[in-house]
Amino acid sequence: MIVDTVKLGGLTVAATALVGYPVALVYLGAGPRWQRVILFVVILPLLTSVVVRTFAWIVILGREGVINQALLWLGLAPAPLRLLQTEHGLVMALTQIEMPLLLLPLLSVMSRMDPSLRDASAALGASKWRTLVRVTLPLSLPGLVAGCMLVFASSTTAFISQFVIGGNRLVYLPLLIWQQSLVVYNWPLASVAALTLLVSVGLGVTAIAAVGRRSRAYAV
């Protein structure tokens, strides 16, 4: 269960970073007006309760939900796929739910980057890809690492999303803590599970920070 919980955090971090970073790059390249629009769209999910967002994902991932209907209509699947109560369905939902936590620190760091550095890189003959890898990515790394840490801590402990979308098929540490403390009143086991969660989230966050430090040293 500890492994599953940490794995869920890891997968969510990977998915949010993969989807979020290109969004941040679009933000970087956009004019001030579009930047405001992107920022508004990023913050928008935070204006709704996480419970509402999670229940909305039931509608999206369900057997008769938007994704399955689209797949059936396009002929990509012969029968509705099972997305609810699966790890990949949960990761999809968490990616959207946790996205603002990744993007806000990332955009904040990116907007403070000196644009002339990228221009200089281009002027010195670097391709766009090389500029991205050698200039933009290292400079934005502190924001990316901070965002990843937030997403990891938040997704491993996201009790509502894990329980509502994962159901009883997927059991993670927060659900175990709830069951043991509130359903069967086994407070000692609940305490152990809570401490385990705290330590594993702490270790995960430390690991992400360490990876961030190492790769920054490498990039420089």
Binding site: F55, I58, G62, E64, L84, Q85, V164, G167, N168
Partner: peptide, 18 residues
């Protein structure tokens, strides 16, 4: 089995045809 859900989400799962 089609769904093993959280009790609070069962009405929503039924309503959505899950």
């Amino acid at each position: 089995v089609a769904a093993i859900g959280a009790p609070a989400s069962m009405p929503a799962l039924f309503q959505q045809g899950q």
